[in-house]
Design a protein around this nucleic acid. Sequence first.
DNA 1: AGTACGTCCTGATCGC
DNA 2: TGCGATCAGGACGTAC
Length: 269
Amino acid sequence: MPELPEIEALRRYLVTARVPGRVITRVRADWPGVESTVDGMAGLSNLPGRRIESIQRQGKHLILSLDRGTLGLHMGMTGRLVVMDPGDEPLRYTRYTFHFDDERRVELDDVRRWATARLVESAENLTRNLGPDALDPGLTARKFATLIRGRKSVIKTLLMDQSVFAGVGNIYADEALHRAGISPARRSNRISTTSLERLYRAMVETLEGAIDFIENHPDERASPYVVNAYDERIRLPRKNGAPCPDCRGPIRSRKFGNRTAYYCTGCQS
DNA sequence: AGTACGTCCTGATCGC
DNA sequence: TGCGATCAGGACGTAC
C-alpha cells in the first residue's frame, strides 16, 4: 500500500535524517538467489564510493541522485526504509543494507520481496513510462480532465495507470472516487468535465490529507503503511457490507482486472 | 487501446 | 482449535 503519500513521507524522512550528503561505503544484499532474480543487482555492487546528492519522488518511485548515476527505489507492496545506527538490530526482512560513511545504514526491509533497487545512468531510465506526478503543480484540473477524457477505460483502472499520471494506487483511487461521488465502473470518456475536475480536487485532497496525517504521526514516517493502513487517512471501509461513512449504506466491492474496488452504490454513480 | 489474468511473495484472514 | 484455501497488492508480461 505504499502509494504517493507514503512514499512522500518516506522521502521527507530520509531528508530529515540527512541521508543526502552521505557516501555509500558498502551494500549488502540478503536475498536468496539474488543474482538471478533481482534486476540491477550487478549495478548495486557499483554503489560504494558514490555520494547521495538529493532525493526526489515521482509517483511511487524514490529517485536518489548520486554524484554519478541515479539510485531508484520502489517499495512494491510492503517495502520500507529505515535509517539505523550502528548498534541497532537488523530488521526482520531486510533485503538490502546500504552502509554510509558516518557509520549509519539504511535497511530496505520487505516481507514480500517486491521492492526494487536499481542503479541506473539517469532518472530518465526510471521515469520513462511514468506520467506526471499526481501532485505535480503543472497537472491542473483541466489537464487532468483532458488526460482522462482521451481514454476509454474504466475510471478506476485509469486512476491507477502509472503511465497516465503517477502515484495513485488501489486504496487512494477508491478514496478519491468516493469523495468525488463517482462510480469506479464509469467509462472515463463518459464523465463530464465538471465531474472530472471534482475528481481531480478529490484526488489532490485525498493525497495531501494523507501526507498531512503522516506528518502529524512521526512514528509512522519510516514505515507509514505498516502500522495500520486503514487509519484516519482512509474514510471508506474496505469491507463488504460495512457502512458508508456518508450515507450509512452498505459498501460493495467489485473487481476490475485483478484489483478490488470498494465503493458505495448510494453515493457513487 | 482496453481488459483479463498469471506471476512474483508471504502473512493475515477466512471458511469449515 | 486446526488447517487448507484464499486474499491482498504494484508492476510487468502475455494473450485476446
